[in-house]
Design a protein around this nucleic acid. Structure first.
Length: 559
RNA sequence: GGUCCUGUGGUGUAGCGGCCUAACAUGCCUCCCUGUCACGGAGGAGACCGCCGGUUCGAAUCCGGUCAGGACCGCCA
């Protein structure tokens, strides 16, 4: 960008440059012929990148005029996001958007070079592939050639990359588009990009080393932020759950959660007793300096806890003089209250909150409370990034589906089991540990992977435990099992959420800011106006009949 | 499917029962200025306050519904 000077004394003979320049308006496309010159003394502007020079125009031509844009094309003013998405090509003209897309490009380039130098090759895998029942909802694509049958868009290249290992590729990667038909969030889009990689003859440490080096190099290259701890700390799943209530802890600040254990049974506070009696737990969070919270502030915290499933919130305010204000004092002796405070390491002026419920509810409420407090208390240093590995995940968890309980793979059904734990499949599957590892940054899961199962009989057994019968296993995964019987090497890999990573590197809080053409919160493309109805003929060709809908789609209502 | 928040000139906001014949900034148009660079000066156009209904003597303002956008819950192996 630079400044053009149209000086009638210095334009070409007979040029209309001055008149033409006078007609130009915002966003006009112009062609200028002229001479680059140093600015006159006193007219330089050191605040601009090209403030020392200017172009002395000989001729000016308008190549294309422009309507007045629907919103100002500057970084300063933020227009409504729906408008930005509808006119995304204008939005991308804003320098901040452009620089985020450039960053995205540079990150992709860096990844390709980094992995290529280490012997990885990028292989593309199909976009039209097979529907699989596990995991997210598939996007389906009807087959014209095969009436009544469907392709699915890949949720991830998972099976293909493992088959590439069986194919002897040894080191694969791909910057891959993935599709999941689930509702959107600030950090979730129905189509998104993963850095997907897989390696043969490796253990957990080998994969983690490559990824850790890459992520650390990316942060050091593209941000000015410090990484809190290097090499990255490893946290076991159960420790993460105990201390932070979530398997993707934000380690930029401390504020650990703490279980009361048997201390919950002191006195006769029924809520605590019941939680323990019903197999649940009581856990607390110490909030420094909030001991003077008002009634209203405490109510707000309680409401926050209720939003995420807690039936209530027990608060304990410690006065500057050490005096305790808490509903629990009616049910517990002062000495017992002091034991609990000591256990929670409470200081004068602190507020301690407790949730008593099932382990799931307790952790779910308290991890959010912890993050909220970390933000509110200003404990987060914006110049720091805190990463860690989370390891030691269980193979299975129990989920409820249509009122029935069943095992569910905590990550994916191809994750390997810790050596020696296979026997637990037959005795206590919930104790079996997966060879799974997640990489977490600032409370975001930015990547996850595992050393895979590479033996057919182990894989078959896992599918069985997940509730698939032999027929389903053969129909859906027969090709995998067969491949494992034909010289499959041990292998493992990982996938990084590319958009989410670029989002963190660019210090934005919304994945849409780092995507050129994202969908809105209702999965619509406001620029192309998709999805939209299609012609009857198209559907006929695809052997598809659409059920009548009571209300027309929003897209078909727009002009 | 649910909860919450937001809809006021092109854009961003203020106003939150009567001072509103709706304010401010910016943008837009016309004219003036011409070494400016967030230029400056003068003037002007532009909004039935998302939509429908209700309460009220009176509604941008309160209530209900609806539509649109966003955040979150459910969902996301």
């Amino acid at each position: 960008m630079t400044q053009v000077v149209v000086d009638p004394e210095r334009t070409s003979q007979g040029s209309k440059a001055l008149d033409v320049a006078g007609e130009t308006r915002s966003e006009y496309v112009v062609q200028v012929r002229g001479t680059v010159a140093k600015r006159l003394p006193g007219t330089e502007n050191p605040n601009m990148p090209t403030g020392a020079v200017e172009v002395i125009a000989a001729d000016v031509e308008i190549l294309n005029p422009s309507k007045t844009p629907p919103f100002p094309i500057t970084d300063a003013i933020t227009a409504d996001e729906a408008l930005r998405l509808k006119y995304r090509y204008l939005d991308i003209r804003r320098p901040a958007m452009r620089s985020r897309l450039e960053l995205r490009h540079q990150v992709a380039l860096f990844m390709r070079n980094f992995l290529s130098e280490r012997g990885f090759i990028e292989v593309e895998t199909p976009i039209l592939t097979k529907s699989s029942p596990e995991g997210a909802r598939d996007y389906l694509v009807p087959s014209r050639v095969w009436p009544g049958e469907f392709y699915a868009l890949p949720q991830a290249p998972q099976q293909f990359k493992q088959l590439l290992m069986v194919a002897g590729l040894d080191r694969y990667f791909q910057i891959a588009r993935c599709f999941r038909d689930e509702d959107l969030r600030g950090d979730r889009q129905p189509e998104f990009t993963q850095l997907d990689l897989e390696m043969s003859f490796v253990n957990e440490e080998d994969v983690m080393a490559v990824v850790e080096d890459l992520i650390v190099a990316l942060i050091q290259t593209f941000t000015t932020k410090r990484i809190k701890q290097l090499p990255l700390p490893h946290i076991r799943f159960e420790d993460a759950m105990e201390r932070y209530g979530i398997d993707r802890p934000d380690l930029r600040f401390d504020l650990p959660l703490k279980s009361l254990g048997d201390l919950a049974l002191l006195g006769d506070f029924k809520v605590f007793h019941d939680a323990v009696k019903n197999g649940g737990m009581v856990k607390g969070l110490r909030i420094p300096g909030r001991g003077t919270a008002t009634r209203r502030e405490l109510d707000e915290l309680t409401e926050f806890a209720r939003t995420f499933g807690a039936k209530g919130l027990l608060t304990m305010q410690i006065g500057a003089d050490g005096g305790v204000k808490s509903p629990i004092t009616k049910f517990m002796s002062p000495a017992d209250v002091q034991r609990i405070i000591a256990h929670m390491e409470g200081q004068p002026g602190d507020l301690i909150v407790f949730v008593a419920d099932s382990e799931k509810v307790v952790n779910d409420v308290l991890w959010r409370m912890r993050v909220k407090m970390g933000e509110e208390l200003g404990l987060i240093d914006p110049n720091e990034m805190a990463l860690c590995w989370v390891v030691g995940f269980p193979m299975f968890e129990v989920i409820e589906e249509n009122g029935k309980q069943r095992y569910h793979a905590t990550h994916n059904p191809f994750s390997g089991v810790k050596p020696g734990h296979e026997a637990l499949f037959e005795t206590d599957p919930l104790k079996a540990e997966a060879r799974q590892y997640d990489i977490v940054c600032n409370g975001y899961e930015i990547g996850g992977g595992s050393v895979r199962i590479h033996k057919a009989e182990v894989q078959r057994r896992v599918f069985q435990l997940l509730g698939l019968n032999d027929e389903q296993i053969n129909e859906q995964f027969g090709h995998m099992l067969e491949a494992f019987e034909m010289g499959a090497p041990p292998h493992g890999g990982l996938a990084v959420g590319f958009d989410r990573l670029v989002m963190l590197l660019s210090d934005t809080e919304n994945i849409r800011e780092v995507m050129a053409f994202p969908k809105n919160a209702n999965a619509q493309d406001l620029l192309m106006n998709a999805p939209s109805p299609v012609e009857r003929e198209q559907l006929d060709e695809l052997h598809i009949q659409v059920k009548p809908r009571p209300t027309p789609s929003p897209a078909s209502q727009q002009s």
